[in-house]
Design a protein around this nucleic acid. Structure first.
Lengths: 111, 111
DNA sequence: TGATTGGTTAAGCATTTACTTAAGTATCAC
DNA sequence: GTGATACTTAAGTAAATGCTTAACCAATCA
């Protein structure tokens, strides 16, 4: 299995910021232009664009420019990859409890 | 709905680092001591402890000291909270496609 | 008791992050 | 063309991150 860690780094990092999470939440409801996306924030446009670049380079958001307006939309693949990671940890954790239960049942039987 | 964002900040931030994710992966297989946890890393103990503090203050890991050894274990609640957030975004995104499909079906019917 | 083991604290440092302001560059509307 | 709109780039900065080394404490062990 290849080192899948760098992309996950970027995705988790991207979602660690509340402004960026809010942008993803907004985009999950449908595409938006940059200034559209910027409206709810008390932040200059360049700051918003920088957040957008983080989101884009993490793969969470895809953008496309037509004329002078850039349209942004979520890319669900990236979301799925972290969902997958988390589910994997939960599975490990649960498997452990199965083994533990089994072990306890066995030692109990031997008592 | 209260501002649930700060805890999520910490959890995503904690998982954004590959070393910390590796620690969570290790702990998902079962509890470990600090030096146990440190072994696979090319990093000094203080660095490991700092990562551990990030994990603990995010709620992803719980630790407990007995004698001179501190035992660390994952806290699945925190994992569940980000699973929940991601699932929520996916749901929004899917709902949008339902609406879109419905809209297209309607306008198609009117054509 | 005195060394060793397991962990902790403090301080310092190079990077990275999350902004800002100021100055662009392309459309588009007239 | 002129001006407004929609974004972009560059440069600077304060604070946060991810380390390090050095010194330290507190349980075990010989």
């Amino acid at each position: 299995m290849l080192n899948q860690s760098a992309p996950l780094d970027r995705i988790f990092q991207a979602l660690a910021d509340p402004a960026r999470r809010a942008m993803v939440e907004r985009l999950a409801r449908g595409p938006a232009s940059v200034s559209d996306l910027a409206k709810p924030f008390d932040m200059t446009l360049p700051a918003v664009i920088q957040h957008l670049q983080v989101l884009e380079s993490s793969g969470l958001v895809r953008t496309e420019k037509t004329g002078r307006v850039r349209t942004c939309r979520v890319e669900p693949k990236a979301l799925r990859s972290i969902e997958h990671w988390v589910a994997g940890r939960r599975a490990q954790w649960e498997r452990r409890f199965d083994r533990l239960g089994q072990y306890l049942a066995e030692t109990d039987g031997k008592k």
